[in-house]
Design a protein around this nucleic acid. Structure first.
Length: 227
DNA sequence: CCCTGATTCGC
DNA sequence: GCGAATCAGG
């Protein structure tokens, strides 16, 4: 793979948006994040509003003016101060280049997007799978709320597996989630008793084995169980 | 451990 | 110019 104009353009755009080097590399394909970083430096576009876990670097003095290091083309695009955190994160076939200016209002229990993909609700993989009831919390703190998934829609075996699994949950916080940790929420968000499963997620899925089992079910299975 | 960007240096 | 290896850090 070589740095064609198109690829460089994508690189510039994503970098300006605050995407991480690894994300850009993933998007471009055929290159590593090292290659991306190397290119970024060679292009002269380097410092931007920090990244990952870095600090905002408070400009204690005067006029700000970052003074970009001799960057030929001006970047009238968006200022990368706030976490861009665009949707993305899906190496699927058809990718939409849509980039809403304003963040869409998310559901109640939030689901903010980190730099990687968002720990949100399951995204049905089209075909015959369909999300079967991500835990819907009851606004009553203090109660254990036994069956995570709304019972009745999940097979007893899967439910038992989930129960067992959740005892071993890593209990990660929202910020500790990564692409390879199970993002299944456990507990009541309104209480201290809330965390994410955090066990190793199945490749390509947002959940661990057990939670995938209750999150994704064949439509037929659901239909049969209903009513 | 996961991740981030920065730098070096042989190619 | 390129990018793997390495470094420095959260």
């Amino acid at each position: 793979m070589s740095w064609t104009e198109e690829r460089v353009e994508t690189l510039k755009r994503m970098w300006a948006e605050g995407q991480s080097a690894s994300q850009i590399a993933k998007e471009l394909g055929g290159v590593t994040r090292n290659a991306v970083i190397g290119k970024v430096h060679r292009l002269g576009l380097s410092n931007r509003a920090a990244s990952g876990t870095s600090e905002p670097t408070a400009d204690t003095s005067d006029t700000a003016a970052p003074a970009a290091a001799a960057t030929p083309e001006a970047q009238p695009a968006a200022a990368p101060s706030p976490r861009p955190a665009a949707a993305q994160g899906d190496t699927g076939p058809a990718r939409a280049e849509a980039r809403p200016a304003a963040t869409a209002p998310t559901a109640a229990a939030e689901s903010c997007a980190t730099t990687t993909d968002a720990p949100a609700v399951p995204q049905p993989r089209a075909v015959s799978e369909t999300p079967a009831a991500p835990p819907s919390r009851k606004p009553v703190p203090g109660q254990p709320l036994p069956p995570q998934p709304s019972a009745g829609e999940i097979s007893p075996e899967a439910l038992a597996s989930v129960r067992e699994t959740e005892k071993r949950a890593r209990r990660l916080s929202l910020m500790e989630l990564t692409e390879r940790t199970c993002k299944w929420p456990i507990g009541d968000p309104a209480t201290e008793h809330f965390w994410f499963c955090g066990l190793p997620a199945v490749q390509g899925k947002p959940y661990c084995e057990a939670h995938v089992g209750v999150a994704f079910q064949p439509m037929s299975a659901r239909r049969d169980r209903r009513r």
